[in-house]
Design a protein around this nucleic acid. Structure first.
Lengths: 158, 158
DNA sequence: TATTGTTATACTCTATAACTATA
DNA sequence: TATAGTTATAGAGTATAACAATA
């Protein structure tokens, strides 16, 4: 339908065609809006990101959080440290793996999480007003698939 | 058509619905792939991002680059410093504004730029294999609009 | 041996502020 | 008074390596 809406000099990407640069700008815009929304709660984006992953029945390990958020090992240690320091989460012994920790939200953490969800929804709404409703769903759908895509090394002939 | 492909508990975003978190993961995936592609060229993503903006007829100021890339003032100073140190760009006096610099690619810079474009195209292709051709165009289109959207402050009743 | 988490180091990005030279 | 660029600082993210405890 609209495949020709962008004649797109495919041969010579000049910046607005480079998906990495687009994602960088898009992420910065979103991060600023989230930061603004979270300001009254006294937590940062990184804390909110972790909290949003803690509302599960199964125990969540730090390794799980790393995979879910695409963060670094040592960054995650600091994130959990900070959540513990604020009384929003605790490290518990993992039921089956004595190496791992089960990260659990505290009562206070669950209360903040509810606020975070509300704020996250507001941030989403504000950020996506530039798109039509069906386009918003489409963008989220494509982003999910893009972010979840497996990396294929160039010599992977599978 | 596919509006119901994601029933989406709109009321309780749990992480995969939060556009900021999706963009964060997507950007990290893209940045890693670009970094891998640029490795043989001996430059980093930040250098490539600037070079891609320098192929214009009009003089490009550092302020222009900041706006185009969504970078910081002081970060951009360093980026240009590093490009100059590598002999890939130079600061020239701006023709009409004596405060500003016109950033120009050198001959060597233009040669590297050609390589960067080729690598950027390859990175795009690798990253977008997870999507169908029409979906790729759609994602780029939506990201452009998202990234370029004006920020609306909550008390902006215009 | 491999994995979970911790600690430490170094580099980069970001945000902020103060400063200059121009406008 | 405002803007383009520079410099300096602090906070955060990322990458890496080494390590302890456990699998």
């Amino acid at each position: 339908m609209d495949a020709n809406s962008h004649p797109d000099t495919e041969e010579q990407p000049s910046g607005t065609d480079v998906v990495g640069l687009l994602l960088r700008r898009a992420h910065r815009r979103a991060a600023r809006e989230f930061s603004r929304q979270l300001q009254p709660l006294g937590i940062d984006n990184r804390h909110a990101g972790v909290l949003l992953q803690l509302a599960r029945d199964e125990p969540v390990t730090q390794r799980d959080l790393i995979a879910l958020l695409g963060s670094d090992k040592s960054t995650m240690v600091r994130n959990i440290d900070e959540l513990e320091a604020r009384g929003l989460a605790v490290r518990r012994p993992h039921p089956t793996d004595r190496r791992a920790h089960a990260i659990q939200p505290t009562e206070a953490g669950l209360a903040v999480l509810a606020e975070v969800r509300s704020r996250a929804e507001a941030a989403n709404d504000n950020l996506l007003t530039c798109l039509q409703p069906d386009e918003r769903a489409q963008l989220l759908h494509l982003l999910r698939r893009f972010a979840d895509a497996e990396e294929r090394s160039p010599d992977d002939l599978s």
